[in-house]
Design a protein around this nucleic acid. Structure first.
Length: 115
DNA sequence: CCCTTGACTATCT
DNA sequence: GAGATAGCCAAGG
């Protein structure tokens, strides 16, 4: 296979790969979950180093905005992929599209895969 | 070694 | 709530 996969990379990939459809996580949150606090800025690089397809679009900023410039190709692509899973961008922030009564929007959308 | 760059964040104004 | 500011940390020049 490839040359070298750092411990960091594989740890990040594991977390991202396990984000369930229709859910999102923050960069910093992914880093922490992987055991590397304060490495939010490196999460994106780890993802782009991955040879396999990862649901990279399920990772957003801590304030729920997308990390790309609004209107850029990457931004539109991420928005499209999220929409396909029922996640919309309202007022610049990711929002669950359909929700049932009494459901906490935050729990529904935000956070690592439930257990 | 110093400086700049980021798909980042938390904390002020 | 929008900006500015200061931390953060690996990579690359």
């Amino acid at each position: 296979m490839s040359v070298s996969q750092t411990k960091f990379d594989t740890a990040i990939w594991n977390i991202v790969a396990n984000i369930r459809p229709g859910r999102v996580m923050g960069y910093g949150e992914v880093a922490r979950a992987a055991g590397f606090p304060r490495h939010a800025r490196m999460v994106s690089k780890a993802m782009s180093r991955s040879e396999i397809a990862l649901p990279w679009y399920r990772v957003v900023r801590s304030n729920r905005t997308l990390a790309f410039e609004v209107g850029s190709d990457a931004y539109n692509e991420q928005k499209r992929l999220l929409a396909k899973e029922g996640v919309q961008i309202i007022k610049g922030k990711v929002v669950a599209l359909e929700l049932d009564e009494g459901v906490d929007l935050d729990k529904l959308l935000w956070g690592p895969p439930d257990n």
